[in-house]
């Protein structure tokens, strides 16, 4: 999946489509920096603990509550309790709109056909409940040659290609 580094990191931030070499699931991490190893705590706990750096966003959480403390966040884990629950897509996109450049990891019921859209929303690492087939992930990520609209990733929409 390393064909097109230009499709790289979120919002022009760090990361390429080439996953970091290393542990078993590292091919699902699309960042160059070392992975934070502090376990994520719930949003309420995170807001209370001024030294926490990893936060878990559950499906009903309002990610905008992180705004005042965004500079200490290094990892946001966004949980998908079931794959049909799409709230996490908005959470990731809003985080990137807030200027967050750190890691956003999708956890839970993350299926291969979601990954492409998650990447476009600003997710840059994935820890699915059930392991994914690497070849399937690569083909899904490279399926669509263009996008029709802006999202968190810096893909150029088709209308912009048309008008230069």
């Amino acid at each position: 999946m390393a064909d097109d580094p230009s499709a790289g990191g979120p919002g022009g931030g760090p990361g390429t489509l080439e996953p970091t070499p290393g542990g078993e699931r590292d091919w699902l991490r699309f960042r160059d920096d070392p992975a934070p190893d502090e376990p994520a705590v719930t949003l309420d706990t995170f807001l209370d603990q001024s030294n926490a750096v990893s936060v878990l966003i559950e499906a009903g959480d309002d990610v905008r509550r992180l705004a005042p403390v965004l500079d200490r966040v290094r990892l946001v884990e966004i949980d998908f309790p079931k794959f049909r629950d799409g709230r996490g897509f908005s959470s990731a996109r809003i985080l990137r709109e807030m200027g967050y450049k750190g890691e956003i990891k999708a956890i839970g019921d993350v299926l291969v056909d979601l990954i492409y859209f998650m990447r476009r929303c600003g997710f840059d690492s994935f820890a699915p409940n059930v392991p994914l087939d690497r070849a399937d992930v690569e083909s899904v990520l490279n399926r669509y040659p263009h996008v029709y609209q802006h999202a968190a990733a810096d893909d150029v929409p088709i209308w912009q290609l048309r008008h230069g």
Partner: peptide
């Protein structure tokens, strides 16, 4: 139609 085709944020609407 074009702008709403494969909108990533709304991959799984309610």
């Amino acid at each position: 139609r074009q702008m709403t085709t494969f909108m990533p944020e709304f991959s799984y609407l309610p």
